[in-house]
């Protein structure tokens, strides 16, 4: 009787301890999630509150006009009074990043399909490692590579058309550099999502008389759509956000937009980065935060557009 009671007590205390553990662990998870969310909020809050200062009447420097900032086609901080127009830079940024995505996306998806579905196991392991290594190369290394090699290629290529470039520094060099940089990002996400496709779907397709390739293109890619487009979004995010490497081959065009691929260009990130260390607190410093707001907006709009495109691709709307 006594032992029975003791055992019951023991069980009850064990049960209480488990409940208590569950609660603590739940709080830890919750705390981490909140912390991560707060970081994003802090960054947004800081950049935005700083970036809108120059446009407010209370600003203690030369107050800037929002409209001429957003639509301007000149960036001349060296003039007196300085001119800050970001419109053409937005167009340059979108053109170079989209150009990179247009080159990189199809190659990435086909590579991913090859790695996940076609390649023999040994080659698959080698290719996966290569893609992972590419993703791990620091952007500054991509930058010196682009400055040393891609610019030369672009210069030679332009020479074929009798066009002279600024030593190869050009929008095209930026596009090629970014295409290489976002390739591993898109590819590795696409590989993961293609691998996750239910094997039964493939068997179902083959049992209906479809060939392997028909199955891969019509069923596997459609099923992996979400992950592939998530990869595209991340890749574009990297393209929009890359500053270091891009600034090494972009040149520093002060008016625009740059529509000629062999001409030098200027992106939002290079605008923020260039001369950051030479400038002193004041308008020129604060305007970089304003450019930061624009960059955040561009990325937000791009992600929304990708969501929209994703729904349209593959013939079905995700209800």
């Amino acid at each position: 009787m006594i032992t029975d009671k003791r055992q019951k007590n023991k069980l009850a205390s064990c049960h209480r301890r488990k409940l208590w553990q569950d609660k603590v662990i739940k709080r830890i998870f919750q705390g981490s999630a909140i912390l991560a969310a707060l970081m994003i909020l802090f960054i947004y809050f800081f950049v935005i509150s700083r970036g809108i200062q120059p446009f407010l009447p209370s600003y203690d420097g030369d107050q800037q006009n929002v409209l001429s900032f957003l639509t301007g086609n000149r960036w001349r901080p060296d003039m007196n009074p300085p001119i800050y127009g970001v419109g053409f830079i937005v167009i340059n940024t979108i053109l170079t990043s989209l150009g990179a995505a247009i080159i990189s996306f199809p190659i990435s998806v086909l590579t991913a399909l090859y790695i996940a579905k076609v390649a023999p196991p040994k080659l698959r392991a080698v290719l996966t490692t290569i893609v992972e290594l590419l993703a791990a190369i620091p952007s500054i290394v991509y930058g010196v590579y682009a400055a040393g090699t891609i610019t030369g290629l672009v210069d030679d290529f332009a020479g074929l058309f009798g066009i002279s470039t600024y030593g190869g520094n050009s929008a095209l060099a930026v596009i090629l550099l970014l295409a290489i940089m976002i390739f591993p990002t898109i590819t590795s996400l696409a590989v993961v999502s293609i691998r996750a496709v239910d094997r039964n779907l493939e068997l179902g397709s083959i049992a209906l008389g479809a060939s392997r390739m028909e199955t891969n293109f019509k069923v596997v890619l459609t099923s992996a759509k979400s992950g592939i487009f998530a990869g595209l979004a991340l890749g574009l995010g990297r393209a929009f956000g890359e500053a270091t490497a891009v600034s090494m081959v972009a040149g520093n065009r002060m008016i625009g937009p740059t529509l000629n691929p062999f001409d030098i260009t200027r992106t939002l990130t290079t605008t923020i980065l260039t001369g950051m260390h030479e400038t002193s607190p004041g308008l020129d410093y604060d305007m970089r935060f304003s450019v930061g707001i624009v960059l955040l907006l561009v990325i937000l709009v791009t992600n929304l557009s990708i969501q929209y495109v994703k729904r349209k691709v593959g013939g079905i709307t995700n209800e």
Binding site: N200, G204, G209, A210, K218, V219, I316
Partner: peptide
């Protein structure tokens, strides 16, 4: 198959799949 394995497409496209492959 053992568990239903419709493709992630519309009802119509599922039924037309085999024919289209032909």
């Amino acid at each position: 198959f053992q568990s239903p394995n419709p493709f992630p497409m519309s009802v119509y496209d599922n039924v037309a799949y085999g024919l289209r492959c032909q």
